[in-house]
């Protein structure tokens, strides 16, 4: 057992890897993730870290390898000799605003989508979003599906999205693909997920409540 999750690889045989994180020289052990390396090297201000397993999308980085710069998640990227890493600040506030509860009708959802995400149909196919996605999502294709009103398929394309919003930063047309994907998933569930077993149980419970009205004070207040 160890006192933290992160020192498991601290044995002496592991080779030393030299890299730069946020401008500081760091010596790390082979096999360390960049988050582990940052902590190991005492790099300050590394607080954009969350789940450490690649699903929360917080630890966004830019990484320079030779003349090539890529973006990604630090907890899913491993140390390499000579690379330069910069942890990115959190994503900016969203540019597109909607509330699912505002949608009363699924029939005009395409029009609503075009109102909310007008940029989605202006994709210039630079593939920046595809390159930026740490999950290998075919972002550009997902956006095209959404722009064509095929929200179920678009949402499916974004299934592995972890909301790191790197595609948003990578999009020159400010389409906000991550949010297009989530919009697609949400309207699909909101308008089309109607499971009989759940509906049946809800109906049973409703009838039960009619027969035995609740004595819970809070619920009464809400009904006022």
């Amino acid at each position: 057992m160890t006192t933290s999750n992160t020192t498991a690889n601290g044995d002496d045989q592991a080779q030393s890897v030299a890299l730069t994180i946020n401008g500081l020289a760091v010596n790390a052990h082979e096999g360390m993730s960049l988050v582990e390396a940052a902590w190991h090297g005492g790099v300050p201000q590394v607080t954009s870290v969350g789940c450490l397993e690649g699903v929360c999308g917080s630890c966004r980085i830019m990484l320079r390898r030779g003349k090539e710069v890529t973006v990604g998640l630090a907890c899913q990227t491993f140390v390499e000799n000579g690379v330069e890493v910069v942890f990115l600040p959190p994503a900016s506030a969203p540019l597109h605003h909607y509330e699912v509860s505002d949608f009363k009708d699924g029939w005009d959802i395409q029009a609503r989508f075009q109102d909310i995400f007008p940029e989605a149909s202006r994709c210039r196919h630079c593939h920046g979003c595809d390159n930026a996605c740490p999950k290998g999502i075919t972002v550009e294709n997902g956006v095209a599906l959404a722009a064509a009103g095929r929200f179920r398929e678009a949402g499916e394309a974004f299934f592995e999205c972890v909301m790191c919003e790197l595609c948003d930063a990578a999009c020159p047309e400010l389409i906000a693909p991550a949010h297009v994907g989530l919009f697609s998933r949400r309207v699909t569930a909101h308008f089309h997920l109607r499971p009989p077993n759940l509906i049946h149980r809800l109906e049973e419970l409703r009838k039960e409540r009619m027969e035995n009205p609740p004595k819970d004070r809070r619920k009464k207040n809400n009904e006022d």
Binding site: S101, R186, A189, H190, L193, P195, P196, L198, L202
Partner: peptide, 19 residues
């Protein structure tokens, strides 16, 4: 579950559409 679906959360379904 009803509330989550209204918020737009998806769940796996059986072929007949049940959760």
């Amino acid at each position: 579950l009803h509330w989550l679906i209204n918020q737009g959360m998806q769940f796996d379904q059986t072929p007949s559409g049940d959760l």
